[in-house]
Simulated scan of single mutants.
Amino acid sequence: MGNICRSPMAHVVLESRLADARLDDRVEVASSGTGGWHVGHPMDPRAAATLAAADYDPSRHRAQQYDTSWPTAYDVVLVMDESNLADVGGRTDRVGLFRDFDPTDPGAAVPDPYYGGDDGFEEVLAMVERTSDAIVAALADTLRTPVEGLD
């Protein structure tokens, strides 16, 4: 909602997984919140600490607010829960839930750990890692498939 917990964690992990798969030069990742109250702020210290403990670099993140042009500017917009989905105008062919790709619990929400303890951030990290792996696998298949008429 404020782009300081779930979505920046997903952003950092997904970018890392894309780099590992050598797809980072073909896929752009951005994250945002549907509310603007944290714009310009770094991610929540608990989210950053959870990422850092798992060898990710959370230092570059600065919160930004969702822009209604994103569904046309980006190929896909993935949100964390049904509330975010409603905030961005609902499900379309380009807008869905991040965990639609989760091999363990497809279509579930990524819970907001903001009001809980550190274990909530670790739970979100596990969800984000496995879902990011599935997203990267789907992208790898898609990006390696030749497009008709192109060599």
Rank of each mutant, 00 (worst) to 15 (best):
Asn3Glu: 02
Ile4Tyr: 06
Cys5His: 04
Met9Arg: 07
Met9Asn: 08
Ala10Tyr: 01
Val12Tyr: 01
Val12His: 02
Leu14Ala: 01
Leu14Ser: 01
Arg17Glu: 15
Arg17Leu: 05
Leu18Thr: 11
Leu18Gln: 07
Leu18Arg: 06
Ala19Phe: 00
Ala21Asp: 05
Ala21Asn: 05
Ala21Glu: 07
Arg22Gly: 13
Asp24Pro: 02
Asp24Gln: 02
Asp25Cys: 00
Asp25Asn: 12
Arg26Glu: 13
Arg26Ala: 14
Val27Leu: 08
Glu28Ile: 09
Val29Gln: 04
Ala30Met: 07
Ser31Leu: 02
Ser31Ile: 03
Ser32Trp: 14
Gly33Asp: 08
Thr34Asn: 07
Thr34Glu: 10
Gly36Lys: 11
Trp37Ala: 11
His38Asp: 11
Gly40Val: 11
Gly40Thr: 12
His41Leu: 14
Pro42Asp: 11
Pro42Asn: 11
Asp44His: 15
Asp44Thr: 05
Arg46Lys: 14
Arg46Gln: 13
Arg46Met: 12
Ala47Met: 09
Ala47Gln: 09
Leu51Val: 10
Ala53Thr: 07
Tyr56Met: 08
Asp57Val: 10
Arg60Gly: 15
His61Ala: 10
Arg62Leu: 10
Arg62Ser: 09
Ala63Arg: 06
Gln64Asn: 02
Asp67Lys: 13
Trp70Phe: 15
Pro71Met: 10
Pro71Tyr: 12
Tyr74Lys: 00
Asp75Ser: 13
Val76Phe: 04
Val77Gln: 03
Leu78Gln: 10
Val79Asp: 11
Val79Lys: 10
Asp81Tyr: 09
Ser83Asn: 14
Asn84Leu: 04
Asn84Ser: 07
Asn84His: 15
Leu85Lys: 06
Leu85Arg: 06
Asp87Ile: 04
Gly89His: 12
Thr92Gly: 03
Arg94Val: 13
Val95Phe: 03
Val95Tyr: 07
Gly96Met: 02
Phe98His: 06
Phe98Asp: 04
Phe101Gly: 00
Asp102Ser: 09
Asp102Arg: 03
Pro103Trp: 03
Pro103His: 08
Pro103Ala: 08
Asp105Gly: 01
Asp105Ser: 14
Pro106Arg: 05
Ala108Met: 09
Ala109Trp: 07
Ala109Gln: 11
Val110Asn: 04
Asp112Tyr: 11
Pro113Trp: 13
Tyr114Gly: 06
Tyr114Arg: 03
Tyr114Pro: 04
Gly116Ile: 01
Gly116Gln: 08
Gly116Thr: 10
Asp118Leu: 13
Asp119Cys: 00
Gly120Trp: 01
Glu122Ala: 14
Glu123Gly: 01
Met127Asp: 15
Met127Pro: 00
Val128Asn: 10
Glu129Trp: 08
Arg130Trp: 06
Thr131Gln: 01
Thr131Asn: 04
Ala134His: 06
Ile135Leu: 08
Ile135Arg: 01
Val136Met: 03
Val136His: 10
Ala137Cys: 01
Leu139Glu: 04
Asp141Pro: 00
Thr142Gly: 09
Glu148Thr: 13
Glu148Pro: 04
Gly149Ile: 04
Gly149Asn: 03
Leu150Met: 13
Leu150Val: 11
Leu150Phe: 15
